[in-house]
Design a protein around this nucleic acid. Structure first.
Lengths: 198, 198
DNA sequence: GTTACTAGGTTAAAAAAGCAACTCGGTAAC
DNA sequence: GTTACCGAGTTGCTTTTTTAACCTAGTAAC
């Protein structure tokens, strides 16, 4: 279950990181639409076909950081065993994210992270593609819940809650407050929201 | 006549440098015989076959710095035109090497260069392989001089002179003197040695 | 005196990267 | 309105690298 070691895997990972870092760095500096994939490839010192072997679309150059969390909710539900309710497991998982100021919870005030979020939400093509990722996430979570319309509805509600919570936190941070300052409210909001899910 | 640009050439050059630097660094630290080619490959983060595609033998990992000067003497003779005597051109070329403290003249007191020379001359297999390089150099120079036994003799004498001069300079530096201090004597020795060649 | 290990060096197949040329949609020039 | 250009993404071919397996010579164990 561990990722394969060796030179091949090592260099692939490095190349992927180099491309992603170069892309985000350029996009933050000049804006998503003012940087071509050729520019990114040149900055990462790889060829254009190689770039598209690592990232299927230009948007993925930015969104792979979300894609890394793909299916996380579904995994939490599958791994929680039978002794504990799925929603409780998801609640605890989100709470843990808040505590470590995970960027996906919106509760992170690092300038780089904030700039990154602004980039995603103010660039239409990026925001659009992000919702596609969220849809896949929702399907996976629904499958983890079971089958039928009820599983789908619950999955949709859980992810809607998480989106709203993250967005709210992000807004507070954007208003100039620190993550540390916002943390208690974020936890209270999460408690209330997940409580209402039951 | 310029080397081709592009990602391929760029990365080849970097890989070659990485291997060479890793090798010399390890050899200087632990000794040539106490470092395996596997160690070098691991340090340079490349596989063993790749290492041998860049350097034919373990010795070449060290001696490529001399190999870069391969055929230099022959080139000087070929390029000197008919208006100037070959020996004079070689003399001037060696003199220029002294002036810029080229390591091949022995007149260089950088600690790294000195350690490198000591490594080569105190490791039998390296010293042996170095003479093979010098033999090829001698053949090339002989061809540049012309044909027959006279050309070969002249080539052998010229290179013998250069070897003795370099070795003498190196010995003076090894005795603790600076390259700057030794320079006048080195020039005088060269003048005398090349003068006698005519 | 076999056995086994190490180190230098090679081989063959498969993965990955580079390169150039291409498609396709948009858009600016004239 | 065609011509030309630019940017996203693709395709086919070549070069480079990894991988694992092998060869050979030396050498230490027992």
């Amino acid at each position: 279950m561990n990722k394969p070691t060796g030179l091949r895997a090592l260099k692939k990972e490095r190349t992927r990181d180099a491309i992603g870092d170069a892309a985000v760095s350029l996009f933050l500096e000049h804006g998503f639409d003012h940087v071509s994939v050729n520019d990114v490839a040149a900055a990462a010192e790889i060829s254009k076909p190689t770039l598209f072997r690592y990232f299927h679309t230009k948007e993925d150059l930015v969104l792979h950081r979300f894609a890394d969390h793909q299916g996380e909710a579904a995994r939490v539900v599958r791994d929680c065993g039978s002794g504990i309710k799925p929603v409780t497991a998801l609640h605890r998982h989100f709470r843990a994210g808040l505590d470590r100021h995970d960027p996906v919870t919106g509760l992170n005030d690092h300038p780089e992270v904030m700039a990154f979020h602004r980039l995603v939400f103010t660039t239409p093509s990026l925001a659009g593609r992000l919702t596609q990722y969220q849809l896949k996430d929702e399907e996976a979570l629904a499958d983890a819940f079971g089958e039928g319309i009820r599983a789908r509805l619950r999955a949709a509600q859980v992810l809607a809650v998480q989106r709203v919570l993250a967005r709210t936190n992000w807004q507070r941070i954007a208003d100039g407050r620190t993550a540390h300052d916002v943390h208690p409210e974020a936890v209270a909001d999460a408690d209330q929201a997940f409580g209402q899910l039951r």
